[in-house]
Simulated assay, not measured.
Amino acid sequence: MAASSGDTLFESAVTKILKSWTVLELAINHGFGGAHSQEKGDWMVYAVCQWFKENDGIEAYELEDFLADVLNTEFDTIAEDGSLIQISEMICKMYSLCASGQTIDVVERLKLLPSPQVQHCVSATVCQEENDEETGDVFCNGSSDVSGSHENGVPAAQTTRADNSHQEEEMDTGDVEADDGWTVVKKGKRR
């Protein structure tokens, strides 16, 4: 992408895509990255654009790994909702459109991006704990519903919405602690 206007358009596209990503906006809004969370979010846009500028043929899975690493390192956040690959594919598609000069298509696609659904996210607070005496695992009851995909191709799985039916899920937080100090919370079966 040699044209400066293409670079600017791609930077605008990356900015809008990342700002529409509920996982990142949640991490920024709640300060998961510390006092400089907003600056880290802005840096992500720069880093993605710079990476595409310096390298040819970046694949979605490579960008997915990069974004996952940044979320983990800078925001202490792990996205397990399937949105990482979708955001990565969207950014790669925008890059190819910008590189081929399809400005109108880029602008139209950006208009379809939804706002992040941070207000619909529910806290992972523990209502009740049940210990499994045999394994020592702790099961937590909570209510959440992950909705299906959005009409315009942006994953609604980015959001966790409170459901009026209050279906309960078991969350296994057990004694599973990774070497890096993270406590792994796994989605369990619905009751």
Rank of each mutant, 00 (worst) to 15 (best):
L71T: 03
L71K: 01
T73I: 06
T73F: 10
T73M: 07
F75Y: 00
T77C: 12
A79V: 03
A79Q: 00
E80P: 06
E80S: 11
E80A: 15
G82P: 04
S83M: 06
I87T: 04
S88L: 08
E89M: 10
C92S: 03
M94P: 03
Y95G: 02
Y95L: 04
Y95E: 00
S96F: 14
L97S: 05
C98L: 13
C98I: 02
A99F: 12
G101E: 03
G101H: 10
Q102C: 09
T103M: 08
T103Y: 11
T103V: 10
T103S: 06
T103R: 11
D105Q: 15
V107D: 06
V107I: 14
V107M: 04
E108F: 15
E108A: 14
L112C: 12
L112H: 07
L113W: 08
P114M: 09
P114C: 08
S115N: 05
P116M: 04
P116D: 07
Q117V: 03
Q117P: 01
V118L: 07
V118P: 01
Q119I: 06
C121T: 15
V122R: 09
S123C: 08
V126D: 02
C127R: 04
Q128T: 02
Q128R: 01
Q128C: 05
E130D: 05
E130Y: 07
E130V: 01
N131P: 01
E133G: 00
E133H: 01
E134I: 02
E134T: 03
T135K: 03
D137H: 01
V138R: 02
V138G: 00
F139I: 07
F139W: 10
C140S: 02
C140P: 03
N141V: 03
G142L: 00
G142K: 04
G142Y: 00
S143Q: 06
V146D: 09
S147W: 09
G148E: 10
G148R: 01
G148H: 00
S149E: 07
S149L: 09
S149Y: 06
H150L: 12
H150W: 11
H150K: 06
E151I: 15
N152M: 08
G153Q: 06
G153M: 13
V154H: 12
P155H: 13
A157D: 03
T159F: 11
T160Q: 15
S165V: 14
S165Q: 11
H166S: 15
E168Q: 11
E168K: 09
E168D: 03
E169L: 03
E170V: 03
